[in-house]
Amino acid sequence: MRHPDVLAPQLRFSHIGFFVRNIDQQAVFYKEVLGFTETDRGTLPTPSGEARLVFLSRDPDEHHQIVLVSGRPSEQHFNVINQISLKAASLEGLQALHRELQRRKVGELIAVTHGNAVSVYFRDPEGNRIELYVDTPWYVSQPCRVEVPIDLPADELFAWIEAHARGLEGFRPRAQWRAEMAARMGLTP
């Protein structure tokens, strides 16, 4: 399906907002563990009462990339957020973040490859799943999720991931996959 030409070049993902139970605890976690800066904080009247908001960003060009909003019901048993994904700058940086998360004893910490990315998953204090990841230069058919030996030296880990990816269905250079997707999206001349 082609996207309308008027929308395709004009939309890009900007930020996410989600409800939390303990806004102060969540704000501390995102600031101290993930390095976000609090850009604003305040209250807003809503139909169900006053909501507290905390705005967080890691980019000075974005007022907020995450907004935490009070009001998540404590009796809620199902979280509609599957994951919040943040891109790391490098494989070495991802490994350093993994070591820090281990040190902080975050919940459900696991490192995996998807073939097209290397990811570290864990939970924030309210159980929201966080993904930190770096892309690989390959594409493989999805879904794909295999644990990786994240503590290997970065060059050995990269070689391990590439050897694994080469044996998976759909393996090809990311640039080739990207060109295919651009054509499917109607973004090529």
Rank of each mutant, 00 (worst) to 15 (best):
M1T: 05
H3K: 03
H3Q: 04
P4W: 01
P4N: 02
D5E: 06
L7P: 01
L11D: 03
H15G: 07
F18N: 00
V20Q: 00
N22D: 14
D24K: 07
Q26D: 11
A27N: 04
A27G: 03
V28E: 12
E38L: 15
D40K: 12
R41H: 09
G42S: 03
T43M: 10
L44S: 05
L44N: 04
L44K: 08
P47K: 07
S48A: 10
E50M: 15
A51L: 10
F55M: 15
D59L: 05
D61W: 09
E62L: 07
Q65C: 07
I66W: 04
P73Q: 01
S74I: 13
S74V: 13
E75K: 05
Q83H: 15
S85M: 08
K87P: 02
A89W: 05
S90M: 14
E92K: 11
E92Y: 09
L94D: 02
L94Y: 14
E100W: 09
K105C: 11
K105L: 10
G107K: 15
T113L: 02
T113C: 02
H114Y: 06
G115T: 01
A117Q: 04
V118L: 11
E126N: 01
E126I: 00
N128G: 12
I130M: 08
E131L: 08
E131K: 08
D135Y: 07
D135C: 08
T136L: 03
Q142D: 05
P143T: 13
R145W: 14
R145G: 15
I150T: 02
I150P: 00
D155M: 13
D155E: 15
W160G: 06
W160C: 07
E162Y: 11
E162F: 09
A163H: 13
H164M: 03
L168M: 07
F171I: 09
R172G: 02
P173H: 02
Q176N: 04
W177M: 07
A179S: 10
A182K: 10
A182F: 12
A183R: 11
A183Q: 10
M185N: 12
G186D: 09
L187K: 12
